[in-house]
């Protein structure tokens, strides 16, 4: 452990730019049609959520709905505040079920892929 004291925290009332994470979010299997017909979205997202906790996949999904998705059919992506059943998530190519699903804390440089299994050929 370093003995150097961490930089003094700025007073809370001063606006400072929030630190951000750079990640890549991808949509495929038909989901790209909800996201401007674009598969790959390099994004900068806040490091922490509203409560000040590290940003999780659940927060990312909310962020995507509020900021990235232009399509109004949110229900094709989110149902009852959770990702729609039938949409798979791969975190750096691993099934999100191996990574804690919505609770996974996003790291800088992560690649998060949303794949729909719901669409036909």
């Amino acid at each position: 452990m370093s003995t150097i004291q961490a930089a003094e925290k700025p007073p809370e009332d001063i606006e400072i730019p929030k630190p951000e994470l750079s990640i890549v979010v991808e949509f495929t299997g038909g989901l790209e049609m909800l996201f401007s017909d674009q598969r790959r979205h390099p994004l900068s997202i806040p490091v922490t959520n509203k409560e000040g906790n590290p940003l999780t996949i659940a927060d990312l999904i909310e962020h995507l709905c509020n900021h990235t998705m232009k399509d109004t059919r949110k229900e094709l992506f989110v149902l009852d505040d959770h990702l729609r059943p039938g949409i798979l998530v791969l975190i750096n190519d691993a099934d999100w079920e191996l990574e804690g699903e919505e609770a996974y804390e996003i790291q800088a440089g992560d690649n998060i892929l949303f794949v729909s299994t719901l669409h036909g050929g």
Binding site: L88, L113, H119, G121
Partner: peptide
């Protein structure tokens, strides 16, 4: 499983197309 079919296609990098009528 549909899930495994999608994952198989993903990991084998198969060329498929998703659409809705």
């Amino acid at each position: 499983y549909e899930k495994e079919i999608v994952l198989y296609a993903h990991h084998k990098k198969l060329d498929y197309f998703s659409t809705e009528c």
